[in-house]
Simulated assay, not measured.
Amino acid sequence: MTRKGQFVVSLVVITAVLAGLSSLLLGYSHAQAAEVVADGGVDPGVLRWGFLAAALATGLSSLGAAYAVAAVGTAAVGALAEKPELFGRAIILVGLAEGIAIYGVIISVLILNRLG
């Protein structure tokens, strides 16, 4: 399997996992929802959209980071083959690309804290 094929397969697997997680989060039962509202909690519709937003923030930022790391990493390896002294700069660039996923996780945590 080619490298591009492996990337596409991994994207499909990640998307399937995110879809399954979202469907579990959206499957909040009406009985549980009535208890939450009766206890003075958050409206179940808000919880559903909040959970979906948190899952999408993490999932899409992770997909974006994966794409960025793949692009920057292959370019960095190509540059390192010609000039090994560029190792430090290449690691910094790959780390910056990975930061995209960390920002998504931070946003998800902020969303989930706001719901609770």
Results as ranks from 00 to 15, higher is better:
1 M>C: 09
1 M>S: 13
3 R>L: 13
3 R>Q: 10
4 K>C: 03
5 G>W: 02
5 G>Q: 07
7 F>P: 01
7 F>S: 05
7 F>W: 06
9 V>L: 15
10 S>K: 08
12 V>H: 08
15 T>Y: 08
16 A>Y: 04
17 V>K: 05
18 L>A: 06
19 A>P: 01
21 L>E: 07
21 L>H: 00
25 L>K: 05
27 G>D: 14
29 S>H: 10
29 S>T: 15
29 S>V: 01
30 H>D: 10
32 Q>N: 11
33 A>P: 03
33 A>K: 06
35 E>K: 09
35 E>S: 08
37 V>T: 10
37 V>C: 00
40 G>T: 05
42 V>S: 09
42 V>C: 09
42 V>A: 12
42 V>P: 01
43 D>V: 04
44 P>Q: 04
46 V>Q: 04
47 L>C: 01
49 W>P: 01
52 L>D: 00
55 A>T: 15
57 A>P: 05
58 T>F: 06
59 G>L: 07
60 L>A: 04
60 L>P: 01
61 S>T: 14
62 S>P: 00
63 L>P: 00
64 G>F: 11
65 A>N: 00
66 A>L: 12
67 Y>H: 10
70 A>G: 13
70 A>D: 12
70 A>Y: 14
71 A>Y: 07
71 A>N: 12
73 G>V: 02
74 T>M: 11
76 A>W: 06
76 A>F: 09
77 V>H: 14
77 V>Y: 13
77 V>L: 15
78 G>F: 09
78 G>E: 15
78 G>A: 12
81 A>H: 12
81 A>T: 11
82 E>W: 07
85 E>D: 09
87 F>D: 02
87 F>I: 06
88 G>D: 14
92 I>L: 15
93 L>Y: 02
93 L>T: 02
94 V>T: 11
96 L>Y: 06
97 A>T: 05
98 E>N: 05
102 I>R: 07
103 Y>G: 13
104 G>K: 01
106 I>V: 14
109 V>N: 01
110 L>G: 12
116 G>V: 09
